[in-house]
Amino acid sequence: MSLRKKLLVVAGVFFIILLIYFAFLHMKIREQINSGVPKSTEFIIILGARVKGTEPSLSLQYRIDAAADYLKLNPNTVAIASGGKGPGEDISEAEAIQIGLIAHGIDEARIILEDKSTSTVENIKFSQKMIPDNLNKGLLVTNDFHIYRAKLIAKDHGLKVEGLPAKTPTIAIPKSYLREYLAITKYYLIKPRES
């Protein structure tokens, strides 16, 4: 077999392994999306996403909408809006979430702001400190592709929560899932060193 053929075989095998690995990750993500949402809970943490000036991106808007729908059905549930202010953002992601929830008719008194975080890890770590002492049962609200990794990170921080999946904008699905496969892979590689 020529060197060129050997390289093609190796590349083909690598590609098949990569496809199988991505299929495994996709299965884990889908399991969490389909795992069911508790009908009532004591608190929810809405994870931040990009804000364009003062307007939430479509991904963040879907998180706000899903959270608002849940809060309307559970009037005693407290909401923690999580996310700092990044480049191109005139307000923090937490403030954009708060404004969006209030526009849906959610009482401002039910919303706690965590406006310092800049990553999913910080969203969860900083929000955890803001959960009122007497509350134990919670939900993470984020786009469906993100639930699996967000719950893993929460578990690492001793926070046992379920997930409330919001829609992912159709146009963003391929990019979002590919980025998430890479983010999960990074999580798998780094986590053992951090624990």
Rank of each mutant, 00 (worst) to 15 (best):
I147S: 04
S195Q: 11
I20A: 15
K155G: 01
I153R: 03
I131R: 01
G88F: 15
P38T: 12
I112N: 06
K186T: 09
E42L: 04
I99S: 05
T120F: 13
G88E: 15
P165V: 02
I106C: 11
G158T: 08
G163F: 00
L3N: 08
G12R: 09
L18R: 03
G100P: 08
E93H: 09
L25M: 14
V37F: 04
M1I: 09
I17Y: 05
P38H: 08
Y188D: 15
P132T: 06
G100R: 09
L140I: 15
S127N: 01
E114S: 05
L101A: 10
M130L: 15
V51I: 09
V10F: 10
A66E: 07
I64Q: 02
L113V: 04
A103G: 05
L140H: 10
P165M: 06
L71Q: 09
S40K: 15
I91S: 07
D69Q: 04
K125D: 07
K39R: 12
E194K: 10
E108P: 02
A81T: 10
D144G: 15
L47F: 06
K125I: 04
I147V: 14
I171E: 07
V9A: 12
S117P: 02
A81V: 12
V141A: 00
A67Y: 01
L73C: 05
A150G: 13
R149A: 08
I17A: 15
K52Y: 14
R50H: 13
A67T: 05
F126V: 06
S40W: 04
G100H: 10
S82F: 05
L19I: 13
D69G: 01
V161P: 01
S57M: 06
K28R: 15
A166Y: 05
A67F: 02
G48N: 06
E122D: 13
I99E: 10
A166S: 12
Y21S: 09
Q98V: 01
G163M: 00
I16S: 06
F145W: 14
V78G: 03
K167I: 00
A154K: 04
E55P: 00
T77M: 14
H146W: 04
N34Y: 12
H104I: 04
I111W: 01
A96W: 11
P165Y: 03
A94I: 06
L3E: 12
N74F: 13
T142P: 00
